[in-house]
Amino acid sequence: MSGTRKKALLKVIILGDSGVGKTSLMNQYVNRRFSNQYKATIGADFLTRDVNIDDRTVTLQIWDTAGQERFQSLGVAFYRGADCCVLAFDVTNAASFKSLDSWRDEFLIQASPRDPDHFPFVLLGNKVDLESQRAVSSKRAQSWCQTKGNIPYYEVSAKEALNVEAAFLAIARDALARESQETNDFPEFPDQIRLNPNQQNQQNSGCNC
């Protein structure tokens, strides 16, 4: 029975410019569907999905945020205790790629993890289904990742469900591996450490209302 298993909760924050597909990525991964009718996100929201990794059930709590910078400062409380920060850009929109530095800095300032140089980021280049309109090459994205301490890069399409599953699974694996090394990203918020089997907020992927 599922209740007897240890369930880890991993908190993942998606950041990036408005319209790069943050809500779509979250919904594709959690609900396995795509809609072009998502509204611009106001405030913050999250969805959760359980994944099995090796012999553990891990609950990914994926946070979707508003893409306009001025709204970021209000949601700081929700950044705290993040296990991973997913930076998203639109491969057909060069400006969204240029903003990545400021999104990364913004997260490090707001969430203030203990060791900013080693906090796990992942980069997702979305909308690769629109190859003909591509404005940011894979090579360029990869070299940016290298300058930021080799953060993993995935080219994905929320619309075509391309690579989304693989990217989030890798995110979960990586965060779990860090947990086993007992890395403590937020020493100043000891109650925020998420990998506690007795934690209440566990939920399965079925809750997709």
């Binding site: 408005s18 319209g19 009718q37 998502y38 509204k39 611009a40 400006a95």
Partner: peptide, 17 residues
């Protein structure tokens, strides 16, 4: 251009249902 691109993105996803 920044303002224009935000408007375009949001108009396309405002009350489309």
């Amino acid at each position: 251009v920044k303002r224009k691109s935000l408007v375009e993105k949001d108009v396309a996803r405002t009350d489309r249902t």
